[in-house]
Amino acid sequence: MNLTAIPNEHLTEAQILQAIVDLSDLSDDQQVHLTACPVCVAEKDRLDRMLLQVGNMAKASVPSVVSRPVLPDRYPGFLQRWFSEVRPFVRIAVPALLVLVIITVALVLKPGQDMHTAFVEEQMIDPEQLLIDIDRLIENPLPQGLQSLVSFAEIDSDEDFMEYIVPVIENDPLSNIPGKKGENIC
């Protein structure tokens, strides 16, 4: 052993600990000293041995392993892998963004409203024709085919028939409802 290569001073306690943490953190001189100085080597070895003992005893205190991990038969699919790979906030943000996009698109396009607007616009093209149609409806609310079955003019002029439909109280022998004479029940 070349004792002249050993610097006079031994490594401090802190340097020994530093050597245990990571030997390369010591300076070159200190590393050389640690390989040659029996006192420092003994101190480092003593601590190393005890730490190794910690590991060995910890290992021995664990029961033997019998089982093996059970993996699913199929390798996770793209969506499943994506879902487990992305960060949790992305997992929430992406579907939320999709919903937002769908709502926005629905609000902007509004197909129902567009059709309605188009219909009204079409009707407004010829207002005169619209007024003619309304007048026609006032005069003849029933379609042509039904008008032949019902004659409103005759019914209006027949007072007996109207009294039969809506009788006046004093003429109604079956009615017990108190009311002014000459007043219609309805």
Binding site: A58, S61, V62, P63, S67, P69, V70, L71, P72, P76, Q80, R81, S84, E85
Partner: peptide, 27 residues
């Protein structure tokens, strides 16, 4: 096992770890 001191829990958690690793290996 060092951290749970229970064989059953250690086995369950180990299974979970490998399952999670299997699914998240792409990360």
């Amino acid at each position: 096992y060092y951290r749970t001191q229970s064989r059953m829990d250690a086995e369950d958690l180990t299974q979970e770890v490998f399952l999670k690793a299997y699914k998240g290996l792409g990360r």
